[in-house]
Every structure is written in structure tokens, then in C-alpha cells.
Design a protein around this nucleic acid. Structure first.
Length: 378
RNA sequence: GGGUCGGUACCGUAGCGGCGAGCGGAGCAGACUGUAAAUCUGUGACAUGGAAACAUCGAAGGUUCGAGUCCUUCCCGGCCCA
């Protein structure tokens, strides 16, 4: 299973599809982030069906803490639990090694966290992460890695990347074991490996070469958009993506802005995810083809237009900027919900536009125009 | 008319002799990239200012080295009694 095929290439940009037990994913794709098994902003899986969502992402660490992967397993897996009818990807908890840096200790065996919820000690290594993800029964599991800070020193990054490689070997072995068990809910769970190396070209390339022949179902580039400049990030993609297997999907983790995505697709990336549309939506930051709006700004108080002219999302079909601004100002949950739904619609439809442009064979001129349009003053 | 409590930024308040006035909220702006985030950060007593006290605390006097803080009178408001 995990059959990825390229439908069309346009320069380095790829239009592909990944066939999974839970459905076919058209790439490039933006995965909608539901860390704890919920799209923050009161958006349901039923809502997602109207927003063009193809893949939903959830998090191993968060679901292990609450409600616990045993519970999710007994409820039939995370997709069944959420009644999510599209494929799901679970992140491994590797990002929490970065984001919860003050609350964890790393050893060769794995990482000990003091849980952000109640402070209890949690140990998670490659085997634990994969076992949890197997219990969650996501479509795609991510390898357990360390995401080092982009400001980490070279010496540290080298050691960290080597450990991530050793962890990847253990992840793969544990995944094979779990997939062979009778009681495993999804015995066709896919495993994506993760490339690291911060902004050091040679480390990125060396690591990519070490993992490319491990026959994983996909390859992610991790450790980007964690403080480095956009130029550095694009450069890392320029040197790293060509080193990864072309016949497997490439996933740029945690990225990013619409512009980041357009640039990364041009460099051969297939999968994306980011908290921006959801988190920023909750904060009144709304995306449009002509740049973003900060809806909290006073200028929208009497603006009778929809968030974006011509948008078909549930928010734009009926409501004005003025009304949604009022909802946000009043602390009404509906305001957050409408902004989040608009942003997810925007991202999901950006991706289908990207796919169409690649199919049409004019991606590289088209995407620059899209970026220019977003930079216009609104 | 008598008594009593109170008048501090747009609103609500702290303050009880060293305050060129604290805190909430609102307002205005910014930040967020594999979500410890419906969060967080700026911004407010006229502004600029050489630097030291040129009028911020209902108003005016007074006491004091020094007053939003104590005293007197007045103005305004709430409540109680006539």
C-alpha cells in the first residue's frame, strides 16, 4: 500500500496522488491541523467536508496525554473516534521535543517530558511513539525525531541528526512489528521519515542520503520554519529535496504561509501542514488572494464586504467583515469559527489551484503571479 | 435642610504623607509556521522637552521639606433622615 504516483511534472513541481487504505490524496496537499483531535475554533469533521479538506493531522503526544491512546484504540482509532472520513496523519511528538524544550530531557533511548497538562512524567522514544500512533490508527505515522532549533550549533545538530537516524531505524522496525499484529487496527499504516540538519547544507544532504534507501512511504523535511529566514528555508529545500526519493511523497513539516507553500511546491514538495490558518483565524488574521486582513483593525468596522470577494466559503457566503469583526470583538466563538473556516477553505482551495496550475504546465509563471497578487495592498 | 459615603484616564477601580499615580476592561497597533496559543506583546493621566520637581488625582485655600493622600470652604453625585 502507500502507492504514490506522479501524474504530471512541471519543473520540480509535482502533481501526484497517494493511494492509502483510507482514500486517495491528491497532491500537493495541505493537511488541516487538529492536534488534539479537534480543529480549534469549533470546526467539526462534518464542516471539513465542506471546506475541501483532504487530510487531517493530529498529534501523538497530545492524544497520548489526553484522552490516552488506549481509549482511542478502544474507540476504533482516531478517525473512527472523530468520525473523520478522510485520511489522517499523526505527528510523532517530535515537534514537542522542540516546542516543550524546557520540559524535557533527551537521551539515546528517547525523551522524558513533564506533561504540559499536569506535570506528570511521560517517556516517549521511537517505539513508544510508533506504538501510540499504531493505536491511534492514523493513515500515516511520522517517525519520532528531534527537531533542533535553527540556531543550534553545528556540533549539536550533527549529533542530533545521527540520533534521529538511529531513531528512524527503530521506528521502522517497530512499525513493521505493529503492522504485523492481528489486533492492530490499521495494519497498512504508512511511515514517513524525517530529514533534519537545521540550515547546514552538508548535514541535510548527508542525512537525506542516509535515509533515502530505507524504503519509507514518504519523506519529510523537518526543522524548518523554526526561526531561520525564508531564504534559508528555500535554500535548504533547494539542496535537500533533490536528494530525497522522487517516487515517494515529500512533506515539508509545519509550513507555512501561502507564499511559503507556493515556493516549496516549486521546489518539489507534496505535503504541507501549518497551524496558521487555524491559529491566525482565531486571532482575526484572515487570508485572501490579495494579502491578509487583520479583522480586528478599526478599518473594517463598517466594511460590508465579505472577507474575500467571490469566496464560496461558509463565512463569505453570508457574512460581512463588519459583522465578523463585531463577533470577534465581542468574544463570540462564532467569529473565530467563521475565520477559521474561511482560512481552511482558502488554504485547501489554494492547493487545488496549485494542482490545476501544475497540470496546465504553467506553474512557475502562475505561482509568481499569485505571490505578487498577495503582496498587493488590499 | 440635616446626616453620611464618595468624586483618580473612555469605563471600573487601587492608593491612606515621598506618586512625575498601580491594576482590570475597552480602544488602537503588532506578533504567531509538525498548536502549552479563542493566546501573547506593545500603547493610557496634555505633548515636546534641557533635565530634576514647569499645574495629573472635582475646585480653591491651608498644614508640611514634601499632599491624590491631612485640615478648611465650595461644587457635584449616591444613600439615609426630615
Amino acid at each position: 500500500m502507500g502507492n504514490y504516483r506522479i501524474i504530471k511534472e512541471d519543473g520540480r513541481a509535482k502533481r501526484g496522488e497517494l493511494t492509502t487504505v483510507h482514500g486517495v490524496i491528491q497532491t500537493p496537499v495541505f493537511m488541516n491541523v487538529a492536534t488534539v483531535g479537534a480543529i480549534k475554533g469549533a470546526v467539526s469533521t462534518e464542516d471539513l467536508e465542506q471546506l475541501g479538506t483532504q487530510v487531517v493531522l493530529a498529534n501523538t503526544y497530545h492524544l497520548h496525554l489526553r484522552p490516552g491512546d488506549d481509549l482511542v484504540y478502544r474507540m476504533g482509532g482516531i478517525r473512527e473516534f472523530m468520525d473523520c472520513r478522510v485520511p489522517m496523519l499523526t505527528d510523532s511528538g517530535g515537534f514537542q521535543v522542540f516546542s516543550l524544550a524546557e520540559r524535557r530531557r533527551i537521551t539515546e533511548a528517547g525523551v522524558t517530558f513533564s506533561a504540559h497538562t499536569d506535570g506528570r512524567k511521560i517517556f516517549m522514544g521511537p517505539e513508544e511513539s510508533i506504538r501510540i500512533q499504531s493505536h491511534l490508527a492514523s493513515t500515516i505515522a511520522m517517525a519520532f525525531d528531534e527537531c533542533p532549533s535553527s540556531r543550534a550549533e553545528r556540533g549539536y545538530v550533527e549529533k542530533s541528526v545521527d540520533r534521529t537516524t538511529r531513531w528512524l531505524v527503530r521506528c521502522k522496525k517497530e512499525m513493521a512489528r505493529m503492522n504485523s499484529l492481528e489486533e492492530t487496527l490499521n495494519r497498512e499504516q504508512l511511515l514517513f521519515g524525517i530529514n533534519q540538519g537545521a540550515v547546514f547544507d552538508d548535514i541535510r544532504i548527508r542525512h537525506a542520503r542516509e535515509i533515502k534507501d530505507m524504503d519509507l512511504d514518504g519523506y519529510a523535511v523537518g526543522g524548518l520554519a523554526v526561526g531561520e529566514t525564508h531564504e534559508e528555508m528555500y535554500h535548504v529545500l533547494d539542496v535537500t529535496v533533490p536528494e530525497l526519493p522522487k517516487d515517494k511523497p515529500t512533506y515539508l513539516m509545519g509550513v507555512g504561509t501561502p507564499e511559503n507553500i507556493l515556493e516549496a511546491v516549486a521546489r518539489g514538495v507534496d505535503f504541507f501542514d501549518c497551524v496558521y490558518p487555524t491559529r491566525n483565524g482565531r486571532h482575526g488574521h484572515v487570508y485572501t488572494a490579495h494579502g491578509h486582513l487583520n479583522l480586528l483593525n478599526a478599518g473594517y468596522a463598517l466594511d460590508n464586504r465579505p472577507l474575500e470577494e467571490g469566496c464560496g466559503c461558509p463565512a463569505c457566503r453570508r457574512y460581512s467583515r463588519s459583522y465578523i469583526r463585531h463577533l470577534l470583538k465581542s468574544g463570540e466563538m462564532l467569529g473565530l469559527r467563521l475565520c477559521v473556516m474561511h482560512n481552511l477553505w482558502f488554504y485547501n482551495h489554494l492547493m487545488s489551484d496549485i494542482r490545476a496550475a501544475i497540470e496546465a504546465g504553467h506553474y512557475h509563471t502562475w505561482y509568481r503571479e499569485r505571490i505578487d497578487a498577495m503582496r498587493e495592498e488590499r
